[in-house]
Structure formats: C-alpha cells, structure tokens
Design a protein around this nucleic acid. Sequence first.
RNA 1: GGACAUUUAGCUCAGAGGUAGAGCAUCACCUUCACACGGUGGGGGUCGCAGGUUCGAAUCCUGCAAUGUCCACCA
Length: 882
Amino acid sequence: MLDRVFDPKSFETNFSFDIEASQRNLKAEPFMILLPPPNITGSLHMGHALCFTLQDIIARYKRLKGFDVLFQPGLDHAGIVTQLLVEKKIYASGVQKGTLTREQLLKEIWFWKESSGYKILDQMKRIGISCDFSRLRFTLDEDSKKAVSKVFVQLYKRGLLYRDQRMVNWDPLIETAISDLEIVEKEIDGHLWHIKYELEDGSDFITIATSRPETLFGDVAIAVSPNDKRYTRFIGKNVKIPLIDRIIPIIADKYADPKKGTGAVKITPAHDFNDFEVGYRHKLPIIDIFNTKAELNDKVPEIFQGMDRFEARKKVLELLGKKELLVGIENIKQILPFGDRSGVILEPRLTYQWFINVEKLAKPAIEVVKSGKIKFIPKHWENLYFEWLENIRPWCVSRQIWWGHRIPAWYGPNNQIFVAETESEAKAQAIKYYGNNSIELTQDPDVLDTWFSSSMWPFITLGWPQQTKELERFISNMIVVTGFDIIFFWVSRMIMMSLFAINEIPFKNIYIHGLIRDSKGNKMSKSKGNVVDPLSLCDKYGADAVRYTLSYLSSPGRDIKMNDQVVELSRNFLTKLWNVVRFAQMNGCTNDNEYDPNKVIHPLNKWIIFEIKNMVISVEEALENYRFDDATRFIYQCLWNSFCDWYMECIKPILQQTSLDYTKLEGYNLNQTLLKKEIRDTVAWSILQFTKVLYPITPFISKKLSGELGVVEISWPQIKNINIDFKQSIKEVKLLQGIISSIRSLKQCLQMSVGKKLNVKLEVMDTSEGNFIESHGIIISTMANINFVDSVNKQIPLVFNGAILHVGIDEKVDINKEKIRLKNEIENFIKMRDATIFRLNNSDFIQKASQNTIEEHKKRVEKLNDKISKIEYIIHNLEIIQ
RNA sequence: GGACAUUUAGCUCAGAGGUAGAGCAUCACCUUCACACGGUGGGGGUCGCAGGUUCGAAUCCUGCAAUGUCCACCA
C-alpha cells in the first residue's frame, strides 16, 4: 500500500534506467537522439534540464513505440573554458604564472577531467535522463582525435582549409585568436578625443578624432574623404605623429566619412579592421605596437614599453594635453567587442592562423534545408540559419592554447607546411619534398577550435572513420534538440561537416527549444542572482515534477518562465495521480491480464475507456509533432477532469452499494459481483494507461505506480484493438453529467444550508433515457447530494431527455436568485440562437458556406431551442410557486 | 540600418475562418471515507491598434505600435 503522503524522494532515487537505455532491438526501425555534449566543466543548469528532458521524452516514447533507440551521452573538452579553469586552480595553489610547460598543464587538465569532469552525468541521471551511459564519448578521446585529423587533412587537400596571415579578433587575456562567433558586443560609455597632427613643415595642422589615442604609435597615415572640401588642400602633404614626430602622409580614401568625427581619421592598419583595408589599398606599412597581452612593445618610446593598453591611453592623453595637442573630448556610446569567455576587450591583430573556407561548405548545407531534407522545428529558425550561411566568412579554427586537438600540421626548416594525419606521414612527405631524410619537423603548436570537433559529433559518436554498423544505421535517422543560440556554433557546422566528410545529412529534424527565464521573463544569470537550480527543484518537488513542468511549458517558439509556483502545479498533479492509485489499492483494483476493454458492459466503463483511447491518440499525435505541451495537457485533462472528477466519483457509490443489481436490466446482465469486478478492473486498466503515457515525461512515478498495480514492464498503450461502439454510452454519461451539474448549480444558487440534502422527485418517462436515469439513480443522488422521494411540495422542475426531476425546495428559500440566473442563461441562449438564425437567413451564407457548416448551424438552432424551452418551462413553474 | 519572434482573462499560456479556452489567482460554499498539493458552484476578455480580403476575421493579408532577440555598422 502506498504511503498517505506523496514523497518523490521515497522512490525516485531507487530507480535506474541504465538497462533499458542500453537495450537495443536490431530488427526495429533505428532512431537516434543526438545529445549535445555538455562541457566537462559544466554542472546541470535549467537550460540543460530542459534540453535533456525533451530529448529523454522523445527517447522513451520511441522506445515504447518499439524503435531501436540510440541515445548516447558525451562530454565536450571545451578548450578555452577548461584550460582557464584548471590554470586558475594551479595558479591559486602557488605556481608561478607562465612557468608551466605544455606537458605539465595537459597532465593537470587530464587529471582534473578524470576527477571532476563527470559530475554532470550524475546530475543527468538524477533527472532521469535515460542515455546509454556505457557508450559515453569524449570529444578528445583517441577515436575523436583520429577523426579530427582525418577531416582536417581532407579539408586541406581539397583546398578548403588554409593557413594565412590575416586580421583576427585577438583575446589578450587568453592570448589566442578567436572566431567571430565568440565575440560579445557590449555598449559602453566612451570618449572621442580630438587630436592635432601638425604638418611636417609646421605651417598648419589637421585634427583627427579617435577613441583609441594609444594606438597613434602605430599610425601610418591620415585619411580624408576625396570629396571633403575642408581637407582637399591637405591631400598629399605629410604630418608629424604627436609625441614621436614620425612623418606620415595624408591620403584621400573614401573610407573617411566627412560626417563622422572631424572627417579626418588616423589610419592604424595593425589595430583596426577598416584601417587594415585602407592600408592594403594604399600599400602602407603595418606597425604592430602590442604584444600578445596587448601591452605596448618595443615599437613605441621606451617610457611606454610594457605598459598595458589602457594605462598607455592615459599616459598618451596626459602628454598630448601638456603639448596642447588634445583639442577636444566628446562623450560617446561605443559598442566594443568582448571575448565571451575572458570578458576583456578584444584587439584586432594580424597573425598567421588556420582558416576554413566555409563559404564553399555552406552552399550544400543551405540546399539540404531549402529542399526540406532537414527541417527546423519551429520552421522560422530556418531564416536565421540561411541568413548566417549566406553571409558566412572564413572560420578561424586555430587557437593559441594547449587543451584541445593539436593541429596536424608540421613545418620544415623553410616553413614548408606538411599536413598529415600522423607525424610519420608528415615526415614521409618531408623526405619526398626535401629529398633528404634527416629533416627536423616541428608540429604547429596550436590547437583547433572546440567547435571543430563538435561539428563532427554526429558521426564520430557512431565510430567514424570506421564504417561501423551504428554509423550505417543511425546517421541521418537522428533528431537534434537544442537552443537557438547554437544554431551558428554547432547545428550549421554539423550539417556542413557531415555533408563534407561523409556526404550524408547528419539528422532530419532540428528541434529548437526556448530559453529558460525567471518568473519575470529575465534571462537567468549568476550576476542577477535569479538562477533557478534544477537539482534543488528536484529535491524540493521531485525530478518528475520538474520534467513535467518543462514538458508542459514547452510550447514551440516560446521561452519558458520558470519558478517554484509552476513546479508546484506539476507536483499537485502527480499527487493526484498518487492518490488515484491509493484509491485503487483501497478498493482492491489490480491488474488482471484477462481483462479485455472490448468486453465491458457498464456505460461508465465504456465511456472512460473511450476517453482514454482518445487521450492516447491525442498524446501520440502530439509527441509525433514534438508538441510536448499538448501531450502533457491531454493527459492532465483526461486524468483530472474525466477520470477523477467524473469516473471515479461515479463508481464510488456503486462499489459501496451492497444491493445494486443490474441483472434485471436489459442488455446489462451484470450481477453485483461481476459489476464490481468489471469496475475494479477498469480502474486498474485506466490507471495503467496513464502510467504508460506518462512514462516518457515522468518515468519515476510511472514506474513506481505501475509496479504497485502489478505491472513491472511498461509498454505503450494498445488501443488500436479497442473497437466497441461507444455512442450510446457517451450519450448516457453525458446525460448523467448534465443532470448532476444542473442540480449542483441549482443547489448552489439557492444557497441551501450546509450539508443539507435536497429532496427530489423523479418523474420518469417510459423511454430508454428514462430507464437509464432511474437505474443509475444511486449515482445521481450521491454525486448531486440529494434524496429521491416520492413527493415534494414546493418544487422546481428540471427537465431532461426521458425524465423530469422535481427538486423540492424549502418554503423560506428565495427563488429570485435562481430566476435571475435562469433568465441570464436563457438570454445568452437566445442571443446565440438568433445570431445563428440570422446567418441561416443570409442568402450569401447559404450559397457560399459549406454544406457541413450549414447543417451544423441548423442543428445548433434545434439544440438551443430545446434548451430555451426547457428553461422557459422552469421559469414558468417558478412563477407559479411564487 | 536589416531580420525574426511575441502581443488572447489579474498572472502564465493554449487555440484558431463558423458559440473565446486551461491552470493559477479571485469570490461563495464544503474538513464527504484517494487527494485541502482536495471538492462544488460562480465572476472575469472589443483576442495590441488601424485598414483590407470574406457570407463570416481573434484567426488570413497590409500597415503601425510596444516588447524581446539576433545580425550588421560606428573615428
């Protein structure tokens, strides 16, 4: 017997889903869910919980539907993040910065990974994610390394990957290049300083505006617009750079915008993307004044050398001020690029890096989505995908850090590059090239962008480059579930790489879920302190409640506002379910394998079977379309409104009765014992259907409760074989519900004294409905809390098909309220009826509306007329009493 | 500057060319034997605004507004 109190902690931790997650059926249709590998530095946040839960719902549903499901977990080595974290730890322990060798650092990181890198997997298990943990993959394991090298070489051989000296975004804290996607732009309050540059001969000066005065040491020209009359006379003359008096030319270039600043702009090719372009056009030199940490180098006067860029700015301004060359300061809003990992302002920097010419890879990737081979759900995310791919720029894939896939490129003495999967192959190439086998090769010190290996995740997890059975079976039969924020980083690159490396689409569907927000709709962030921790929610309400909430709130294209209150709702629902099973146990309802829903006789049983069948069909349809919200809602409504509020309440009086016998009734042929047995079996059967459809969403409680009723293995409901004719039963139960609701409303309106039962005289017409009402009187009297009597004095008649219920009322009761209520009701019905009649009288409507619609309208008028006349009858009688 | 999304009850959100929905909150009543994390009965909305298409628009189209997000640019 279940505990009186529903406490998820009492059973959730007892369950493990490892076995079913690893069970495979090679004869069944394959289906894979591509789990985005969390970082080894990660711990489970709400976004993970959402993403993984939705995937787990799909995985479990597909398993129940008989698919061969592969749901494989993985971990991402997360280059920069992990290296920063471990370095910080090492430095905190007293090690001097910069003294660590590459080998020492890598050893420390591997050690850290083995001791703390698996935390998130346990947290995933806590929320019931049923991956096959025996197939765990890591983006930096040996097989991944082989695959990464192979693809790198392929790209290189096809000319899609190259090494080049170009301007890149440089992170001076981590001292590495990063890709365009790793930039976060932030608006800050900045200044525009106006600085005088004197002409070489001292005869005049030109004033430029800059937000970065410290870069003047790297200036190589002043540019003005060729159309700017203010400056025409300066073009071709030379100026002296303030403080250092180096001579540079004034040039005309369309880049200089007369409307911006002073119209004259200093050109510093080494430290600005646009200036680099201008410098290139005018064949100007490039003077890089920073080291890798963005400290000033030996290209500047000695007092500035080694100075940080911001310190240098202050000093430059101070000196300019003293020389009266600083002639104005404007306050401006600036949008500056920050490193998303380091949080510092990035510097444009000219370096040698490896780039992928993604433009070529993008074309087929656009095509597979345009042609519908790959679908985004919701569809509108395609726009974002296309927009990015159509304007894509080369992807800088090299990083000047140590933790990651080492670039498989080696350099000979004259810097000749040898790209190969292994060092010995590179060596072989070198021997051929130099005709000499005593050549020393040095491997490129850099590693690849973490997203390079992530982009290969769909096929490296399946064993590529080996042609495994899994690869053949599951590639292209996948769904990926993720957030919109990594469509660029991950999704699009996986599509490009799969098409390139294995010539297959990696997956068919991309489900893009919403963003988790706090209850006010703000993004969750540590700095705001509004982060909701999924694991503490699990501790408070249970993992099932958290999962249920996420599923319930996952409407396509909408963000999820998460707070305790919504999880409470889920917990309440699960409590309800828990108590339903307690009821079943108290009434001896357990699973009977002989039970056949097609053979039930009692209309209530037929009706609830019908309701459940419909619910299952709806849930299936919803899940097939990834409408987790709908699926959850259908189950909720069926369990709570149909099963608990009506079915269970109706059968209670029957189970408690000792003298009820349906054998007399035509077509029933149910004696007391058989009837109760049929009800108990239907209760158990119904609950089991609920545990089945809920299993993908709330696996813990489903498993627990199903077990309580004697079923250990959970399967998807078999409802296709249920083919009884429900029509009559639905009609009867609706009649029953109508009668009960009417009496309840009436009673409430009359404000009868607490707990007092109404006396009702039942007048039965000799019809099947009449007989039905009479024989189910026990249900009506219990549910509506009335006594059936032979006669009543002062009464209100309630008219139904087949019977009139004369509701006896107290002499003192004020029936005016009831009259007002009924008059309002009748007014509404009349309005509705007249609107419908008006439409039917409209010749355009009759001509143009569909036949079905017209029929519906006619039926509606009939029904409304019937209701109206019944209420009129009651009002008429009320007036007589008065 | 460009694009996308959102706008429906006090709140959170479904819906959708033909009678405006749910949960929470609210009001009234009820400790009845599965459940007060419960039950019963109520109240509450010109579906952001303005046009258009249609017999009929909350729903389709156009424009606008507000909010959010992304991309691009900025001396």
